[in-house]
């Protein structure tokens, strides 16, 4: 699973960075979204994820922490998803405003000559 996870993170961030460096605003926003997906998976992977282990403790009795997965990265991912989604939505608005004001979807607001 570690291999699949790291491949997924690598592909997401790699294509995100490539898109981020493109000149069209739409490519930039898709790039940023892909990067944030990659980053979210990365945070998740930093909790040393395991298959079939719950993140929540059951009630009663002494518990063995080794049988559970780390819940903190999952909580962090939730926060990061919400914040990333909100800021990307905000960027989308600015992108549309820029398109309306300048009549161009180039990141500099005008076509290169």
């Amino acid at each position: 699973m570690a291999l699949v996870l790291s491949l997924a993170i690598g592909v997401l961030i790699g294509s995100g960075v490539w898109l981020l460096l493109r000149p069209r605003t739409y490519q930039v926003i898709i790039g940023l979204s892909l990067i944030s997906y990659g980053v979210n998976l990365f945070i998740f992977s930093m909790g040393r994820p395991r298959v079939g282990a719950p993140p929540l403790l059951g009630s009663g009795g002494p518990v063995d922490p080794a049988a559970y997965t780390d819940p903190i990265p999952q909580a962090l991912v939730l926060t990061a998803i919400v914040i990333g989604f909100a800021t990307t939505a905000l960027f989308l608005v600015v992108l549309l405003v820029s398109r309306g004001l300048t009549g161009s979807d180039h990141v500099d607001g005008r076509e290169p000559r």
Binding site: F42, V94, S98, D108
Partner: peptide, 20 residues
């Protein structure tokens, strides 16, 4: 709007680095 767009893009990329 043009300056703001650059500012937001840079800071979103910065936020990704922050999280990593």
């Amino acid at each position: 709007v043009r300056a703001g767009m650059h500012y937001i893009a840079i800071n979103l990329a910065g936020a990704a680095l922050f999280l990593i």
